[in-house]
Amino acid sequence: MAYLQQYGVYIAIVLLLMYNAAFTSNFISVDNFRTQFIQMVPVLIVALGMALVIGTQGIDLSGGAVMALAAAVIPLYIGYGLIPAAAMAIFAGCLIGVANGAMIAFIGVQPIVATLALMVAGRGIALVVANEQLKSVTNPTILSLGRNSIVGVPYSVLVAVILVAVVALLVNRTTFGKQLVAVGGSRRAAELAGLPVKRILMTTYILAAALAAVAGIVATARLGASVPSTLGNLIELSAITAVVIGGTPLTGGKVKVVGTVAGALLLQLIAATLIKNNVPDAYSQITQAVIILIAVYIQRGKLAVR
């Protein structure tokens, strides 16, 4: 059981790869793997932020709404170029993070309630900002972010790799990272140790929102259109699943970055396997639910052991 808890997600990935190599046509190809990596980027980036939030014993349901808001903001500023548009999109996303963080850290609203409110309100704001319009994005720089590669690595995947490295560094090697898991381990003890708990929580939710905004930018770039009505819908659930499958306990106090990457990859492979083998929608929903249940069950076992 302990072995399964530690390596379950990797074993599952290997099993899925083996299954697909045997039964799914054209699976073992560079192009296919590139597609899988490109497609998992938005979930992975949102999951990185989610892992930080879950590390503080919180949860963030507003990731999809932040993606939508970022998508809605891009067309407004793309005339100035990709960098200013992206900066504005991230800035707008951060405002959602500020709202989340303020409610959770300073007013004491439960994370699930606060971020649920922003999940609903955020998408509404996105639609207002976009004037309820879907807009094509034609700026070549942003399109190239979504479509082009450098030495065979798509830019979007490169962005994700950099963010994974940054978050890993943040968690393992910075004061903030250590303080974050301390707050997640015992908020009361962290307060009594003089840690700026409120500031840490605030920063964490802002970081999560900023990451979700980046996910929104990358997704928009790939799509070539700003679609605030549907972009990132329910992505937070995939992100939570990826984090939990990756070994970060929902009870906080621990952040597994590499595990989160593996969790996101596993979800991506599951989705790809189901689509490529033409499994009807209803069955694939059931399959995904079963996998989530198994992951949570294994996590529960881990808690009981400790």
Binding site: K178, A182, G185, A190, A193
Partner: peptide, 25 residues
């Protein structure tokens, strides 16, 4: 104590900012 952290992390918890260089531990 913060139960999920190591002895080291628990000891340095309050002093962490002083033991860091530019935010890095």
């Amino acid at each position: 104590i913060i139960p999920n952290l190591s002895i080291r992390d628990n000891i340095v918890l309050a002093a962490l900012p002083r033991l860091s260089v530019g935010g890095f531990t």
